[in-house]
């Protein structure tokens, strides 16, 4: 039936991501947000939630899969993705970083370099429980400057945490400029590989591909996996893409109108 096909389409990850981006722009009119980094991570967050079978009803299940947003300043994207997935209580969020107790938030973050260690602890607990639940940690690329990330990377590989997946939002920009100018990360995939991780480089805006990659059975299963997800800061609003000045701001009414008009409703489909 046509109606069913339409429901299926609106439920597709790419369509959900497009609605989350629109919601994000609407939020940015009434409060300052980390817009560029939020726009870049929307597709990743949609894909992880989809791959993990997230539903609001399951969000309190002790045996749920876990997502830790380690790049906490992108919380605005998380709010919008969760709201589009039906999580109540997120229409008018105020906190600029994830807070414990917020629906759908697994851990308060914002001080960078904490999430992968927390994720490793969640993964250790799953293994001790004999559960097959998985843990995903979404990291910023600038965040990889923090030494604690590499403590956790070494630990997760040593402990053979095959139930842990890290996704790096590789948008190549941090606050003051290109990552390669501030503190070079490349060769990034080789770094993770040398730490003992299974590495996949993926298009971080191709929701379908991300979901496939996250749900594909991993072999060998005793290595943690990292997806280096290539993204564009500001993704979805062409005039914001790759522009550092859209890192953190509140949109004027006019900027909002222009952004909504420019918003590609199906950003991943053509790629």
């Amino acid at each position: 039936m046509f109606a069913n096909a339409s429901d299926e389409l609106s439920d597709a990850p790419a369509a959900l991501a497009a609605r989350a981006r629109r919601r994000l722009l609407d939020l940015a009119v009434s409060r300052p947000v980390h817009l560029g980094a939020s726009l870049s991570v929307v597709d990743i967050l949609v894909a992880v939630h989809r791959a993990f079978g997230f539903t609001p009803a399951r969000s309190a299940d002790p045996d749920r899969h876990r997502l830790v947003l380690s790049k906490g300043h992108s919380v605005w994207a998380l709010y919008c993705v969760l709201a589009e997935l039906g999580m109540p209580g997120l229409d008018d969020p105020r906190a600029g970083h994830p807070l414990d107790g917020t629906p759908g938030v697994e851990a308060a973050t914002g001080a960078l370099g904490h999430g992968l260690s927390i994720g490793a602890g969640l993964a250790e607990a799953a293994r001790l429980d004999g559960s097959d639940r998985r843990t995903a940690v979404v990291l910023g690329d600038g965040e990889l400057n923090e030494g604690s990330v590499w403590e956790a990377a070494m630990f997760a590989a040593h402990r053979r945490l095959g139930n842990l997946v890290a996704v790096v939002d590789r948008n190549t920009l941090q606050q003051e400029g290109p990552t390669e100018q501030v503190l070079a990360l490349e060769p990034l995939a080789a770094k993770w590989e040398s730490f003992g991780w299974r590495v996949a480089e993926v298009d971080g805006h191709d929701c379908g591909l991300l979901v496939d990659t996250l749900t594909r059975p991993s072999a060998p299963t005793d290595r943690p996996t990292v997806l280096v997800a290539h993204t564009v800061k500001g993704r979805g609003v062409p005039y914001m893409e790759g522009e550092p000045r859209f890192h953190h701001l509140q949109l004027t009414e006019r900027q909002h109108r222009e952004a909504v008009a420019a918003l590609d409703p199906r950003p991943a489909v053509a790629r």
Binding site: H114, L116, S117, I118, A120, A123, A125, F155
Partner: peptide, 9 residues
């Protein structure tokens, strides 16, 4: 951090 993840579980 690992302690936090375990305790959160």
């Amino acid at each position: 951090g690992v302690a936090s993840g375990l305790a959160r579980s």
